[in-house]
Design a binder for these strands. Sequence first.
DNA 1: CGGAAGGTTCGATGGCGGTCGTACCATGAA
DNA 2: TTCATGGTACGACCGCCATCGAACCTTCCG
Lengths: 111, 111
Amino acid sequence: MARPRTTPRTVEHPDLSEVTLQQVLEALADPVRRMVVSQLARAGGDKGCGSFDTPVSDSTLTHHFNVLREAGVIRQHYRGTTKLNSLRADELEARFPGLLDAVVTAAEAEA
Amino acid sequence: MARPRTTPRTVEHPDLSEVTLQQVLEALADPVRRMVVSQLARAGGDKGCGSFDTPVSDSTLTHHFNVLREAGVIRQHYRGTTKLNSLRADELEARFPGLLDAVVTAAEAEA
DNA sequence: CGGAAGGTTCGATGGCGGTCGTACCATGAA
DNA sequence: TTCATGGTACGACCGCCATCGAACCTTCCG
């Protein structure tokens, strides 16, 4: 948006100390976003943007990734034309102990 | 609503097995509802409807209580003209281990 | 240098949910 | 029985957010 033409694509990630419980809960309260988090948790490491199984369009998925990133839940970086995603599990655990685990576990159990 | 005139006021509570993670997360994602839950957690036991410190009107608060009850987060029962509320902490812990604790703890830490 | 693949941005839209005020109901006390 | 209290039901409003399609931008590969 504010990026001038032809600049390497970078992504802004908040420090977890700036992230509120409200943001994280809102992020995790959406079913599609929880699918993303679940699949990311199952994958363990990085996972390409296009490799997620969701019922929404690409542009909507981009939106969800943004919400998750701004909530400090995921980390994103480019490699070539592909955007890789990973969970910020450890940092999140330090900030909100038990929260991500509980949600991921519950999501797994329900599915 | 469907209750005929002059019937003792009772409240419907879902079995926690019928409650979804979605419901619980949506319930806990609202700031006002989280205030209610926090104050309930701090109180330990029952707490009258009118004794909560929130920034919303009575009718809105009633709405939030309904959401929390339908999500299996709180239990309500009448005593005289007063409605008492309590957390369904143990049941919730059995259904979604660690979830309520994590949220309550985080909410306390942030406040 | 094309062109294709992978994502993003933009604008529009639709629906849901939080909010309120008012009217109403049940209970207990005077 | 009448009144006051505590809470609910209802209807309306408003703002936000998930969603989409289309246009666009980057990067890689022929």
